[in-house]
Structure formats: structure tokens, C-alpha cells
Nucleic acid binder design. Structure first.
Lengths: 103, 103
DNA sequence: TTTACTATTCGACATATATCGAATTATATG
DNA sequence: CATATAATTCGATATATGTCGAATAGTAAA
């Protein structure tokens, strides 16, 4: 099935989490978008690219690059909503990750 | 307490698992040395540096480098037993890792 | 259609990393 | 002590990565 992952897939996932800024972004996204739920980046729950960058002290292009990487390995999913980007943590991959570490 | 970890610590841990060869080494070690139990690298359960290298197709020095990295971030612990190296997965850090991904 | 705001892409660069082979160190045994 | 075996360290190198700033693209609203 298309969901099965091998060693290299997991290595890529870990790599996506191996940078402190990227890991912070991931946790921030996870905190505002519970796995399985799609949260908009609205006023109360703002976490769009620009703001994430300000918090971290990196420019927008870098944040965009990191988000792209998180999405590439499947950790998060994103969708444009107007000018901003909605995102959520993929619940399946989180489960797969925990399963992977269960030995 | 000395066990508490911050974002950067976890990023380092993920980085240690982000290389396919290193991840393979870690899983191989985990499979022969259950967390919390210290297993020697004896004949039946051989996983010392040289053999790990042969399996992966990398030279000893590279394996040694990877093991050093896994140890540095605390994922595994090692101890010399004669000419060979005993190792085991640190159960605490595994638990911390799973806890970290529980949100 | 302008203008404003947001996100992405692109090119550049400095730094980090994976890997190898040679040299060295550690341990055991003849 | 000399030899053999195992692991580490060291120096070199090619590749990957994180970051920035400028340019571009997408969306909304005046």
C-alpha cells in the first residue's frame, strides 16, 4: 500500500525534525492544529508563515522552505485559504512514527 | 534535573536518526539489545562495529563515527568488553522521545 | 486595474555532514 | 615482547543544508 514506509522514509522524517527551527515550527503547528483537525490561521490562532518567522528570527523565505520540507516528508499537510495557509499534522504519520519507535 | 531536554536536544536526537545508515545501526542495536538490558556482542548476537560495517557496506571508521554520534545524543550507551563493544539502548531517552511526540 | 499583503521560488554562500583510507590506540594471546 | 584483532581518531573531500535577500506569484480589496 502507499502508506508503507521503509528505513529511508523514516530517516527523511527524522531529518525534517532535526533542525531546531523546523522542529519549533512543527510543534507550533501541532499545538494550534490538533492531529486530524484542520485549523485555519485566523486572528486568534495565528501561525502563518510571516509570524512564525518573526518568532524564530528568520525570514519568510526560510520559513517557507522549512514548511515545504515538513510537507514533503508527510508530517504536515497544507492548503491555501485566501492569502494564508491552513495546515495540520497528519495523524497517520504521527501514529506510524510512534509505532516505529515501539520495540 | 539532568534529564530534562529542550527543543535543541530533541533536534539533535532526531538528527542522529536522520541518516539511513545510522538509523539502521540504531535499529540493529535495538533489536539485539532490548532497552534496559545490556547485551554483549558475542557469537550468537554479533553486532560489533566491523560486522555492522559489512552489512551496510561502509568502512569501520564510518560505523565508529555513527556510533559515537548515537552515543553523543544519548540514544545508546556503550562499554568496552575486551576487544569488542557492548551497547544498549537507553530506555529513558526512548520514553522521552515517545512522550515528546505525544500531543 | 492598481495597490497591498502574503507566500514561494531562485541564486548565492557559508557551514555542516557522510564517507573514505591511513595512522593510532586498545586489548588479547602466542 | 611480537602479533593479531578490533575500534577510534585524523585529515581530506565531495555533497548536503540552512539561511538570506531579491524576484516572482497568488489573493484580496480599494
Amino acid at each position: 500500500m502507499s502508506n508503507s514506509k521503509n528505513i529511508e522514509d523514516f530517516a527523511e522524517i527524522f531529518k525534517a525534525l532535526s533542525n531546531a527551527n523546523r522542529l519549533t515550527i512543527f510543534l507550533r503547528l501541532a499545538s494550534c492544529c490538533r492531529p486530524g483537525t484542520v485549523s485555519l490561521f485566523d486572528e486568534e490562532n495565528s501561525a502563518y508563515v510571516g509570524e512564525l518567522g518573526e518568532e524564530l528570527g528568520v525570514v519568510k523565505s526560510t520559513v517557507s522552505h522549512h514548511i515545504k520540507e515538513l510537507r514533503r516528508v508527510g508530517l504536515i499537510r497544507t492548503e491555501r485559504r485566501g492569502q494564508k495557509i491552513a495546515c495540520w499534522v497528519d495523524p497517520d504519520i504521527l501514529a506510524a512514527l510512534k509505532e516505529f519507535l515501539s520495540f
